[in-house]
C-alpha cells in the first residue's frame, strides 16, 4: 500500500470559488504583491561588508572585563563555573599580591559548550564577566574553541554599553 501523508495530499482543504477557479486574476494578484515589494525598503544586509551593531541587551560571547591597569576584575571565585549549565567554564585560582588576593591563573570558556544563557554574568559578584556584542565565532579545530584569558580579556571601555545596561537593569529591580 502506498503511504500517503496528510502533508502531500494534493486535494485542497477548501472549495475554491469561481473567481479563484478562473486562475488568471489570482496570478495577477500575486504579481502585484511581488511588484509592491520592489519599492519597499530593503531588509537584507551586505554581510560581511555591512555589519550589524548589536544593542546593549544582546548576549554575545562572554568576556572578562579588564581594568585600566591591565588586570582582570575577576577574583576567580568560581561561581560562573558553578552556575554554568553546560559546564563550559573552567577557573583555576591563584594568589596575587594585589588587594583582591585572588586572581584566575587560568580562565577558559569552551565556546562549543557555551549556550549564551548569561548566567555567568548574572551570578558574578564582581561584574567581571559580561556578555559582549561579539557574535562571530568561527573555529576550525576543537582546541580553537576553548577561549583562554588571552581571548577573553577585553578593555573596560569596549564594554561600556553593556556595563551601563547592567547597572540600569539592576537599579530597576
Amino acid at each position: 500500500m502506498q503511504y500517503r501523508s496528510k502533508y502531500n495530499n494534493p486535494k485542497p482543504n477548501r472549495k475554491l470559488s469561481l473567481w479563484e477557479k478562473l486562475y488568471l486574476p489570482e496570478i495577477a494578484r500575486g504579481l502585484l504583491t511581488t511588484i509592491k515589494h520592489l519599492f519597499r525598503p530593503k531588509f537584507t544586509r551586505q554581510y560581511p561588508e555591512e555589519r550589524w551593531e548589536a544593542p546593549a541587551a544582546f548576549r554575545g560571547r562572554p568576556v572578562l572585563v579588564m581594568e585600566e591597569n591591565g588586570q582582570e576584575r575577576c577574583v576567580a571565585c568560581g561561581l560562573c563555573s558553578r552556575v554554568c549549565p553546560p559546564l563550559a567554564i573552567e577557573v583555576q585560582a591563584s594568589e596575587t599580591d594585589l588587594l583582591k588576593e585572588r586572581y584566575p591563573v587560568r580562565f577558559e570558556i569552551n565556546m562549543i559548550r557555551c549556550i549564551f544563557c548569561g548566567f555567568c554574568e548574572e551570578v558574578c559578584p564582581e561584574e567581571a564577566i559580561v556578555m559582549s556584542k561579539d557574535y562571530e565565532l568561527v573555529y576550525r579545530k576543537y582546541d580553537d574553541a576553548i577561549y583562554g584569558k588571552d581571548k577573553l580579556l577585553t578593555p573596560k571601555k569596549d564594554l561600556k554599553d553593556r556595563l551601563e545596561y547592567l547597572r540600569e537593569m539592576r537599579n530597576k529591580t
Binding site: 576567580a76 571565585c77 585572588r102 559578584p125 564582581e126
Partner: peptide, 10 residues
C-alpha cells in the same frame, strides 16, 4: 566582610 568570593571557606 563580603569576602565570600575570595574566601577559601565559602
Amino acid at each position: 566582610p563580603l569576602d565570600c568570593p575570595i574566601c577559601d571557606e565559602a
